[in-house]
Design a protein around this nucleic acid. Structure first.
Ligand SMILES: [Mn+2]
Ligand SMILES: [Mn+2]
Ligand SMILES: [Zn+2]
Ligand SMILES: [Zn+2]
Lengths: 139, 139
DNA sequence: AATCATTTTGCAACAAAGTTGCATTATTTC
DNA sequence: GAAATAATGCAACTTTGTTGCAAAATGATT
């Protein structure tokens, strides 16, 4: 059973506001990762740009969403799995896929990032893997 | 024997200008990846901001440098190995490391990106792996 | 349910990053 | 060296993100 936006906000001890509920609902029903601009287009007339920035910031800190690095320099956000919310720090260990055709970025939640052996002297804390190519829908 | 900036520009059929030579020299002597701002700080008084943008763009297209995706939304550039220049398309298959301490990003040229098995229906064209943590110098 | 303390929001103003058009200057070709 | 071609600097602009502050909304308390 999936949690509602209200429940997620409550369990993250964020006060429940129209803006946060709306933005979280957008994430909950989105099939792909969202950039700030995507969210702005979906609720520009309702909420200020600054509010969206601050909301995303709050969600990030609470472990509700995570960012996805990209070559095109646009920060994209996607929902975390529940563990991030509870534990307070991110451990999204899956591969991200960016489609060259449709431009969409998605979380491959089932695809774990393979381990890699670094040169001596380097200590890894976090690993990101972004694969680009053609996605399932565009093939 | 390392190529000079002039030789690299010539073999990429780019006309040789003071700006391009200077910026390429900065890359040739840099131990880490450079953001636009890093370059600007090193030659602000000499070249216009726009010229730096256009130079980086030209270097990218010619396969002289490649971009490194990052979470902090800052595009960083580093020299490609020679193959990219000759073949005309990028195939920088190494891991990138971003140090949380010193903030520097470096190419781990000797560390190949491990292969990963994607779900059915996805076709990979390019793979990026960015490891963050503590680098050799900061340990 | 009304009150009060605490957060959140919208607005304005700003800073930084990146792009485009165009006249001027530099580089290459002949 | 002259002509053709390409690169540069400047101005103007867009997009992205940040900050301070007053007004509005939320959550806790009575
Ligand atoms: Mn993800
Ligand atoms: Mn590299
Ligand atoms: Zn696609
Ligand atoms: Zn370091």
């Amino acid at each position: 059973m999936k949690k509602t936006s209200g429940e997620i906000l409550k369990s993250s001890s964020l006060s429940i506001t129209d803006g946060r509920k709306k933005i979280l609902d957008i994430f909950l029903s989105a099939p792909n990762a969202l950039a700030h601009q995507d969210i702005e287009l979906k609720c520009k007339e309702k909420f200020d740009r600054v509010t969206i920035y601050r909301t995303l910031q709050a969600f990030l800190e609470k472990g509700i969403i995570h960012t996805i690095p990209s070559s095109d320099n646009i920060t994209r956000y996607a929902l975390c799995n529940d563990d991030c919310i509870d534990s307070g720090h991110h451990h999204d260990n899956h591969v991200h896929f960016s489609c060259d055709e449709c431009g969409k970025t998605i979380c491959l939640d089932e695809t774990a990032i393979p381990s890699v052996r670094l040169p001596n002297g380097f200590r890894a804390h976090q690993i990101n893997m972004i694969v680009s190519g053609v996605c399932k829908s565009c093939l």
